[in-house]
Nucleic acid binder design. Structure first.
Lengths: 219, 219
DNA sequence: ACCTCGCCGTAACGTACGGTACGGTACGGT
DNA sequence: ACCGTACCGTACCGTACGTTACGGCGAGGT
């Protein structure tokens, strides 16, 4: 019958959520080599149920990715008073959040399977991760940038270019190196430092004030 | 006997190179779903030879990746007279080259398989791609940055930080989006424009001259 | 008490594919 | 002429895994 569970509506039994969490854990441990049997065993459910709920292996993977995506909905940041300080704080917080997510086991595992399956299967996993990764980040950040531009704190022509520059300054080679298996101890303090550096660099490029903070070393 | 062909010594028969080229083509077409049988058929060789030459499937993939890496050895750029113009040109050329490589089918395919296998197999494919991707880029770029610093055109404390910032400004979200299957028409003119923008932004952050080119739009 | 439904556990099926074995052919050396 | 080497093509084996089928069981309804 091809159920094709749409997780975004979250029409999910608690039982099914448990199953997806188990699948998520296995995905982190074993990557794309996880088997339907292993998921069933880990979740203490029958393979028959897996197939009834998710259609096939691809459907299970898709549902798992969407389930995780549903769980990371970040909180939007828009404080009342808006000035350079709050803009800076917002950008830093955003950068740090993003680096924390990217560095997590789950993100790495999901991106790995999505990259592996990109463009080749029916429920395009790559598109889903793209949608809930970079694109979601853009949707969340752009209002902040827009606000910065409207209040005269930032100056840029193309919103998309500004966003992508910020993305580059924050992520740099971190994600690709993690995906390729490079250990890359992202301690909490290192993340905070990188977030500050990226924010300062971004402000140096797109901020209107002629402050001295040109070099990427915060004070 | 575990041959484990070391391609970096290029102890490869012409016949074997042909086989690896065939494997490369199949990798681009089919990704990690390529089978030993398909490679043998495409290259008009026997599976027995594949196993004799490369040990096993992993060995074949490894040899293929190394073979491609051997073919992309970029040419170093160090002109005689060194000034801001040549530094800028060098950076732009570098950025454009890198974007062209990243956008190519072969790079995308190889990065996909390497990400998929990262950390899980014996010949760590991820490490190999890491070595011939980001790390090779760093080794090639750093001398240029060093020269820029020595001649007083650039100013930075940490070489590595400067490199990674340049990386971020050039690559941004391009690579991850390509890996996740996003079409992303990288025309030649778009690449050149991006290379110029990234270079200008980098110079704005790390250059010593107080030129006005702060915003990412070239003139 | 009985039926139905949803689920677990397990066994079974089909197949794709990694890996091996073997016969046949071309060729260079002696 | 004979042999060894290297290779192709193909058939074959073993296994892992996706997928399906079936028997049993507890719960809720009638």
């Amino acid at each position: 019958m091809q159920p094709t569970v749409d997780v975004s509506e979250s029409g999910l039994t608690e039982r099914q959520k448990d199953v997806l969490d188990a699948a998520l854990a296995l995905l982190v441990e074993a990557g794309d080599t996880l088997t339907m049997t292993s998921v069933a065993r880990r979740a203490s459910c029958s393979k028959e149920s897996l197939y009834k709920w998710f259609g096939d292996r691809d459907g299970l993977l898709t549902a798992t990715v969407q389930w995780q995506a549903l769980k990371v909905r970040g909180v939007p940041v828009d404080p009342g008073a808006f000035n350079l300080a709050s803009l800076t704080a917002g950008l830093e917080r955003f950068a740090a959040d993003w680096l924390r997510v990217l560095g997590g086991n789950i993100s790495v595992a999901l991106n790995r399977v999505a990259v592996g399956h990109a463009g080749s299967d029916k429920h395009d996993l790559g598109a889903i991760v793209l949608e809930n990764g970079p694109f979601a980040m853009a949707r969340r950040l752009k209002p902040l940038l827009q606000l910065g531009r409207e209040t005269g704190l930032l100056e840029f022509q193309e919103m998309d270019e500004a966003f992508r520059t910020f993305f580059g300054l924050v992520v740099r080679d971190v994600q690709i190196r993690l995906l390729l298996g490079d250990r890359l101890g992202l301690t909490e303090t290192a993340i905070d430092g990188d977030a500050r550096r990226a924010t300062q660099q971004f402000l140096a490029l797109y901020g209107v004030q002629t402050k001295p903070a040109i070099n990427g070393h915060q004070s």
